[in-house]
Amino acid sequence: MNFPALAGAILFWLLAWALNEWLVRQRFQSRTAASAARFTVPILFGITILVLWEGIVRGFGIPSVLLPAPSMIWQRLVNSLPTLAADFRQTFLKSVLTGYALGCGLGFLVAILIDRSPFLQKGLLPLGNFVSALPVIGVAPIMVMWFGFDWQSKVAVVVIMTFFPMLVNTVSGLAAASHMERDLMRTYAASWWQTLVKLRLPAAWPFIFNALKINSTLALIGAIVAEFFGTPIVGMGFRISTEVGRMNVDMVWAEIAVAALAGSAFYGVVALVERAVTFWHPSIRSGRA
């Protein structure tokens, strides 16, 4: 047991906690100080978790096979950048982005196509909701059989996973414009097409972005899990499952860190675009996303 490391970590934790408690109780005069405080609190919390992690691993002498310390993971990450970059290219750039674009695009198109048929909507919506609750990820082995080991099969999995959330959200988004507004468009003698572009699509953006955000996480998960079922010797899912087998746990964590970073960045980009597109929405106007 290594007491100084453990004690240091716990001391840091208590200090950071006290600082956070103090920070959220402050009333700042200037806007910048207030927003700086708002950012500091969660960041401090994150750093605290890392410090505690490091302290516990060192303090109790946990073998690195079980749980490597953050510093070790960082070293590993820096040392194996080329491998990680190749995996990132294979999984994220090829599988995730292609599948995400195709799946969301298809869901959107189908939603627009069935927009004019209430009959089809009534038939497809409950099914879409149902499928969203299913463990769709299970189709991964089938897709791997059909489309081979390379990234095409992962794209297929991602397309299937992202299609239904997009369909359901777009359809309910297109129904979001109220009767008053639609009647107004009618009095302007607007065509269906004009109503769609000028009224109903803008009203649907919050719903569509909701689906885009859900899908950004789903897509990454789908691609990685699909790689467990067979892949060429590159890719994040492949690396994770093989390095676990070889007990290189620090490499696995490095891969996870990359995945987490990619996932968060992806989500963040979608959220930023959402802020720009739906700037009029109450949840954005009041400054809370």
């Binding site: 899990v225 676990v244 996870i256 968060s264």
Partner: peptide
């Protein structure tokens, strides 16, 4: 942020 981490990928480990 915890949900942007593909937890399913960590499942094996």
């Amino acid at each position: 942020a915890s949900q942007t981490i593909p937890i399913l990928a960590i499942a094996p480990m």
